[in-house]
Amino acid sequence: MTRPRLRHLAFVVRDAERMAAFYCAQFGMELFHTDPDGSRFVTDGYLNLALIQQRLDGDVATGFNHFGFQVTDVPPIADRLAEAGVPRPALRGGDRPFAEYRAIDPEGNWFDLSEHGFLPPGAGAE
């Protein structure tokens, strides 16, 4: 049996429509579902990201810790993000084996950018 692969992440957000538009515009993700409450679901073709509309009568706070994108080249992505009005991604310090850059979306959620991926050093893509 092959190991399970991460294919879905979820955030509770204040403005699901705006967040879906951001990820579609900045990372080429595609909207594939909208719930009656306004929650949006986008995908990159492998992983899907649920952007769950926060409810005023709910008790769930917005956010999540972070997630990551593997990219071919960080500088053009960093330029697009800065043009979109979010801070330019910052080089992460320390001896991290992956996730070279930390970035932030319009609502303050962290995400990482990596040119070589998120597998431990020496691990091959399966």
Rank of each mutant, 00 (worst) to 15 (best):
G63R: 04
A61H: 00
G68H: 06
G63H: 02
P4K: 08
L81Q: 10
N48Q: 13
N109P: 05
V60T: 13
Y46A: 13
F41Q: 05
E17I: 10
D37G: 02
P120Q: 10
N109C: 09
A50Y: 04
D57V: 10
I104G: 00
A125I: 11
R40Q: 15
E100D: 15
H66T: 05
R55V: 08
T34V: 15
Q54E: 08
G108C: 03
G63M: 03
W110H: 13
G45N: 02
R102W: 12
P106F: 03
M1I: 14
P97R: 09
A20Y: 03
M19I: 06
H116Y: 09
A82P: 08
A84K: 02
G28Y: 07
E17V: 15
Y101Q: 02
C24L: 11
Y23K: 07
G108T: 02
T34N: 13
L31F: 11
T2E: 15
F27A: 06
H116S: 12
L51Q: 04
F32M: 14
E17N: 14
D35I: 00
F69T: 10
Y101R: 03
L31C: 13
R7S: 13
V60I: 14
D59P: 05
G124C: 01
F64L: 14
P89T: 01
R96E: 04
C24M: 13
N109F: 14
R3F: 05
P97G: 11
Q70D: 02
T43L: 00
F111T: 01
Q54S: 07
T43E: 00
S39P: 08
L9T: 11
V86T: 12
V60C: 10
T2F: 11
P97F: 06
G122K: 10
G45D: 01
L119M: 09
R102A: 15
R14I: 09
S114R: 00
N65M: 08
G58H: 05
A50P: 07
N65I: 09
D57K: 13
Y23S: 01
L81Y: 09
P120W: 06
S114L: 03
M19V: 05
F111I: 00
P121K: 12
L31E: 15
L49R: 01
T34P: 06
G122I: 03
I77R: 06
G124D: 05
Y101W: 12
F118A: 04
D59L: 11
E30T: 14
F11Y: 14
D105K: 08
G122A: 08
